[in-house]
Nucleic acid binder design. Structure first.
Lengths: 102, 102
DNA sequence: ATCGTACTACGACATTCATCAAAGTACGAC
DNA sequence: GTCGTACTTTGATGAATGTCGTAGTACGAT
């Protein structure tokens, strides 16, 4: 757990990376959950049906793309949506994705 | 060239498929070009730097995801953005993607 | 210090996928 | 019909990726 937790700055976020990060069912589910919990949550609590190591991979993908921000808290990692950055860069994108009924 | 050119109906379009279709640099470029040409264009004319068979693959991916509509015209295929359907299903998504500066 | 919990790192594996080349099909022009 | 153009199909290939298990690290509680 020694890792740095690097996050891209706002101007480093690329639309292609964001779209790729969102284009996975598990990650989409994570994003949907984070959209409901503004304050952020530990993704390990979500009923996603994948192992812990797979979840780590997905959260890292979202973090490195600039979709979520992750902060350590005790033995947990609290993830939250970078809504402000995403809305500023790609206005409407996140709302459009979240509006999807399926 | 006997192919059916099947398109998903609006209610068959899935957000995961759309995001996957958009999450490729070449396909993003196609979508950007189509956004400028409301009437539709032959994608073969775009300077995309890929072979014809690769282009066929990308246009099919976009078509099957419901992002573009393709109609035969002579020996060409005219592609156009399904903006109405996408805006209805995922309001803001397309505009957000197109607003991206990089 | 020991234990349990939460997460990460490293491999391994199977699948998906972007890409191309070669051969084939459809259409228009001549 | 013949030719050329535009696109598709098939097969191959290498890279990326989602998944897991195992082992390891960090932190809190006892």
């Amino acid at each position: 757990m020694t890792t740095m937790l690097a996050h891209p700055t706002r101007d480093e976020i690329r639309i292609a990376s964001v779209l790729h990060a969102l284009a996975d069912p598990v990650r989409l589910e994570i994003v949907r959950a984070l959209a409901v919990h503004e304050e952020g949550i530990s993704c390990g609590l979500l009923p996603l049906g994948v192992t812990a190591s797979t979840l780590t991979h997905h959260v890292r993908t979202l973090r490195e793309a600039g979709v979520v921000r992750v902060r350590p808290q005790g033995t947990s990692r609290i993830s939250s949506l970078r809504r402000d950055d995403l809305d500023a860069l790609f206005p409407g994108l996140l709302d459009g994705v979240l509006a999807a009924r399926r």
